[in-house]
Each structure stands twice: as structure tokens, then as C-alpha cells.
Computed example of a mutant assay.
Amino acid sequence: MQQNHSVPETALPAQQAMRHALLFAAVLLLAACASGPQRRPPGSGTSHSALAGLPPRAPSAASAGEANDILFRAIGLVGTPYRWGGNTPAGGFDCSGLVDYIYRTAANIQLPRTSHEMAAMDARKVRKMTQLASGDLVFFDIGGAISHVGVYVGKGRFVHAPNSGGTVRLDDIDGPYWGGHFAYGKRVLD
């Protein structure tokens, strides 16, 4: 006798609510971990952003809801595999495919396909890391040209798809590598 172990349709909203609650808890944990004083033993190899103590900044009051949607979408994609040319969770992401997917699905904003084209968009440029707002695009100059993009989530952290063989991840924007290659941000949501 074969038993059917499928989930009843009435359980689906409960599962979705649970997923949203877990995602919200992850964001709160990120904020809690980043907000307290951070001491590391010398040579521990880990770093936390010096920007973690800055107050959260939204792009504008009018776009705060869109910024929130973008942050939830971005953080929810952490762990998705990297794939050059990829632009879906099922197929994986490269850096610009990830950023376009986040904006397209969370804010209904279609972005150009490459990091170089995104950097050339008509949007307010943010030159200082301390002036970045949640949801800003962040660009990195690697080898003399803009060749990498991510989404700033606040507290000195950004979500991006960094390299082949890796996954979408959350990194310190002012860390040893990324801080040295930071070019500027773009405020798309204003």
C-alpha cells in the first residue's frame, strides 16, 4: 500500500509565512551581529565592517518600502551558486545577473545586463561608503574598469555573486579586498 505524503494546499500559506519569518529573523540576526562592538583576536583572519555602527539609511522616505523588498530578496539569495551569464536562482547568477534579478523581481525595475552598463546608468552617484543607503548599487573597479556590482544592504555589508565556483554571499564593503576596489555607489531608488 502506497501512502501519499504530499503537503495539503492549506499548509502552503503557513510554509510561506514560516519562510518569511525565517528570512526576517536572519535579517535581524545580521543587524544584531553587526551592531555591537566587535573584537577579534590578532590573526583571526576575519573582519567586520568599520561601517557597522552607522545608523541604517534608506534612499528616501518614498522608496523605503522598495529598499526593504530589495534587501529581503538580496539576502534570501545568499548561497545561490555562481554561474557566469546566470540570471535566475535555478540557473545561478553572475554579479550583474543577480543585481538585475533582485531589482526586477523586488521593485519591478529593469537594469542593464552588465556591471559596466549599470555603472553608466543615469542615477545619483554616491562616492563615499559612509553615504551609501540600503538598496544602492555598489561598483568595483578591478583592473582599471568597473567590472563588478553588488547591492548594499546596510551596516557596511553588500550582497554579490563574486566568482566562479562560489556562491552569492554577504561581504564587508570596506574589507581588505573590496574596500580597495570600491569605486562608487548608484542610488537607483530615488
Rank of each mutant, 00 (worst) to 15 (best):
P81V: 11
C95H: 04
G85C: 10
C95V: 03
F72Y: 15
S49C: 02
A26D: 14
F24E: 15
R83F: 03
T105D: 10
I102G: 07
L77E: 15
V78L: 10
P37N: 10
A32E: 07
D69K: 14
L51S: 08
G79H: 03
G97F: 06
A106H: 02
G85V: 04
A120S: 13
Y82R: 04
L29Y: 09
G53R: 11
A25V: 06
E117M: 10
T114D: 08
E66W: 06
A26S: 15
L71H: 00
T46C: 03
A64N: 03
P56W: 11
R39V: 14
T46W: 01
G85Y: 02
T80Y: 02
P81M: 07
L111H: 08
G45W: 00
F24C: 00
E117Q: 15
L71G: 05
A107L: 05
G86D: 05
R40V: 05
T105S: 14
S44T: 07
L77A: 06
S47M: 02
T80S: 15
Y103R: 12
P89F: 01
Y101W: 14
R83Q: 13
G43T: 10
I102T: 13
S49L: 09
T80F: 03
G76A: 05
G97Y: 01
A32Y: 09
L29M: 12
M118R: 04
T114H: 06
A50L: 03
Y101T: 06
I75Y: 08
T114K: 07
P112E: 10
R73A: 15
P56C: 04
A74E: 06
A74R: 01
E66Q: 15
A119H: 12
N108E: 12
S35L: 07
A58S: 13
Q38V: 11
G86V: 07
D69Q: 13
A119Y: 09
L28S: 12
L71D: 00
R57E: 03
F93R: 10
E117C: 00
L28T: 08
R39H: 13
L111R: 10
P81N: 11
A58Y: 09
R83Y: 02
T80M: 05
R113Q: 13
G53K: 11
R39K: 09
S115A: 15
I102K: 04
N87M: 05
S44P: 02
G36I: 09
P59C: 11
S47T: 04
L111S: 10
R104Y: 03
A34I: 00
R39L: 14
W84N: 10
G76T: 06
C33P: 00
M118T: 05
H48F: 01
I102N: 05
A107F: 02
M118F: 05
D100I: 00
R40F: 14
P37R: 08
R113G: 07
I109C: 03
D94Q: 08
N68Q: 13
F93G: 10
A120I: 00
T88P: 01
Q38N: 06
A64Y: 00
